[in-house]
């Protein structure tokens, strides 16, 4: 009988080893451990045994039952694991198929540049203000010390609405509007559209954007202007950018200067972009002309200021390598969506 039990155990175990699915497992369980199973059958026949053998065989049968139960459990786990593996294998996908993209709209490149400029000056303590685009002759010219017969007043350059009202040719009138309203210290930037009656071509647009910078305080110097603008130029065009201040003329600043940076296309070697000079003009600046300070009622002996004006299109063209100004206003989405 002991041998029979051992055989049952071995048979069952070897069957379990090769089991393939849950159904087969169930069959084996019933065949061996079920109410009519082989092991039960043997236990029932135990009465035929001599009494002294019974405890021993009983113990053995129980052990085998437990052992088989464990084996079945293990087999069950094995089957489950195998099933999982099959499913996972079946679920393999082609990861080279393109993903589903979210379409996010883009900002116009001029907005991106403007945001960079604003971020710099706001960080330096400047407030962003705006002024009207349709402006009076007084604010656009007269209050900026641009006398009646200055070349900048020619019809050729300025769009007029009537004799006294025009489309501002610069953001500088905002300087005057701000200074009329508040007392120093003043630190503002004024971005906005300006207008010149230039025919449209790769470098001219009748509508373009400028940012005006103005600071007025008790003792601002040309050195201060340099400090702020050099920092700004390097913020926009890179830490190692060469910067130079070249004397120039604007009616509303004195001394006046142009700020040049080393050419972004050739790094100063001289190329088409910089017309061979190695330098690119990026903004005009200077100390606020005392005549302008007087016009707004400040005392030039007590306060001084500096101002700068820059073209946003020009900076965007240099920064992004755009060679035609018309692209900004054509609004081809294939252009805008590159940014």
């Amino acid at each position: 009988m002991k041998l029979e039990l051992e055989k049952i155990k071995e048979d069952a175990k070897s069957l379990l080893m090769n089991i393939k699915n849950k159904e087969e497992l169930e069959k084996i369980r019933i065949e061996y451990l079920g109410k009519k199973g082989k092991l039960t059958k043997i236990l029932r026949e135990m009465g035929k045994l001599p009494p002294e053998e019974r405890p021993f065989i009983g113990q053995l049968a129980n052990d085998i039952r437990k052992e088989l139960e464990v084996s079945i459990e293990e087999a069950e786990k094995r089957i489950k694991e195998k099933g999982k593996q099959i499913i996972l294998k079946k679920e393999k996908i082609d990861i080279t198929v393109p993903g589903r993209k979210h379409i996010i709209g883009k900002k116009h490149p001029l907005t991106l540049i403007l945001n960079e400029i604003k971020a710099f000056f706001v960080g330096m303590g400047y407030e962003v203000v705006e002024g009207p685009e349709i402006e009076s002759d007084y604010y656009n010219f007269k209050a900026l010390n641009i006398p009646e017969d200055h070349p900048a007043r020619d019809m050729q350059d300025t769009f007029y609405i009537n004799e006294n009202i025009l489309l501002r040719t610069q953001t500088s009138p905002v300087q005057v509007r701000v200074m009329e309203k508040v007392k120093p210290p003043i630190k503002i930037i004024a971005p906005g559209r300006v207008y010149r009656s230039d025919e449209v071509d790769a470098t001219h647009s009748p509508v373009f954007n400028q940012v005006e910078v103005l600071a007025v305080d008790e003792s601002l110097s040309l050195g201060d202007l340099k400090g702020v603008l050099i920092t700004f130029a390097r913020y926009l065009f890179g830490e190692n950018r060469d910067v130079r201040f070249r004397a120039s003329y604007f009616p509303f600043t004195e001394p006046s200067a142009e700020l040049d940076i080393s050419c972004t296309a050739c790094e100063g070697e001289g190329c088409k972009v910089c017309k061979g000079s190695g330098w690119l003009e990026i903004l005009g600046c200077g100390l606020v002309n005392p005549a302008v300070l007087e016009i707004v009622g400040y005392d030039p002996k007590k306060v001084s200021g500096f101002a700068a004006g820059m073209g946003v299109e020009r900076i965007a063209m240099l920064k992004y390598g755009i060679d035609d100004m018309r692209l900004f206003y054509e609004n081809d989405l294939r252009f805008i969506n590159q940014f």
């Binding site: 330096m124 303590g125 407030e127 305080d217 050195g223 920092t231 201040f245 004195e254 200067a257």
Partner: peptide, 28 residues
């Protein structure tokens, strides 16, 4: 002042950062 500045050379002027009152930078 402009004549002296430009002939002396703007490039020789030491860049400084403005002192004076701090102002609050902001967009409205």
């Amino acid at each position: 002042c402009e004549e002296i500045g430009r002939i002396y050379g703007f490039d020789k002027i030491e860049p400084t950062l403005p002192r004076g009152m701090t102002t609050l930078g902001r967009i409205n």
